[in-house]
Write a protein that binds this DNA or RNA. Structure first.
Ligand SMILES: [Zn+2]
Ligand SMILES: [Zn+2]
Ligand SMILES: [Zn+2]
Ligand SMILES: [Zn+2]
Lengths: 148, 148
DNA sequence: TGCTTAACGAGACTGAGTCCCGATATTGTC
DNA sequence: GACAATATCGGGACTCAGTCTCGTTAAGCA
């Protein structure tokens, strides 16, 4: 949920891509627009299907290619909740809108959450172990309020 | 790294399986013994290969079946570092030997670490969000000391 | 010893993700 | 605008972790 006054992720992503020397291709633009309109993570299959059913057809190879590029540039977070399907969601600069996920082991619902202390603890660990942290993932599993 | 005086994980796992009414099968025993001798996580493929090259052959179906059972019983932790391969490692009761992983984005090395404050932060988040946490995974990504 | 049924394993199958390679579109230059 | 250079795209074959089926083996028990 970006702040109302913050620029759209699409804008940020496109600027970044331009500055990295990428050309502007229709397939990539379609994937970016779709991801920008999402609340939380989407799988490659979901992206492919939604684009196929829309007016802008995009091949599977392109979807995966674009997702890889964006993850590589840090414009996208790859979320893996353990069901064998990778999901992707927009990542804002400076860690804005940075969050993690809770997965209900009963109904499968994906609930996002954020916590500063958790983030601090992670940074502290990395420093203590002498590791240069580039990214991290946290997944909590259990019962959601509905299923408890 | 279990404490020297602590019982072997094999023992603990077998007792638990017995108390749950499982019969003692050769395939399951082989998988358990192999996992007990490991320092950190092993993939299903690695387990299958190591058992196949040893004297105790175990079919793939059995390996996956046993791993699922053990994860279900909380005797095993499923570790997914994002390369499309699930790994498994012994889980001790009471969270003893509980740890998480750092993955080097350059050389792929898997480095285990533990941190009480991180664990506390996770429990706090779950409570605040009204979620009943059954398990969790944390993966840090970046450069290890060797590759930095 | 004999019965019941859990445990096992060969191998077919599924599906996410990868690759190849020819077709198409973008950008810079003239 | 035309053209060359090359980034982008996509159909479809392919890989391979993980799943399923079903007939066989063997643990537990009376
Ligand atoms: Zn999310
Ligand atoms: Zn739920
Ligand atoms: Zn480990
Ligand atoms: Zn490294």
């Amino acid at each position: 949920m970006p702040h109302a006054e913050a620029p759209r992720w699409t804008t940020y992503a496109n600027e970044r891509l331009a500055s990295e020397g990428f050309r502007r291709g229709g397939g990539r633009a379609a994937v970016i627009d779709l991801l920008d309109s999402q609340e939380c993570a989407l799988s490659a299959q979901e992206i492919e299907d939604q684009l196929r059913s829309g007016e802008r057809k995009v091949g599977r190879a392109t979807v995966y290619r674009v997702l890889d590029e964006l993850v590589e540039l840090g414009l996208l977070n790859k979320v893996e909740i353990g069901d064998g399907v990778a999901r992707f969601e927009a990542a804002f600069p400076e860690g804005a809108d940075h969050h993690h996920h809770f997965v209900c082991s009963n109904c499968g619902k994906l609930i996002p959450f954020e916590d500063d202390e958790l983030e601090r603890a992670l940074r502290r660990v990395a420093r203590r172990e002498g590791l240069v942290m580039e990214s991290h993932e946290v997944t909590l599993r259990g019962r959601c309020p509905d299923c408890d």
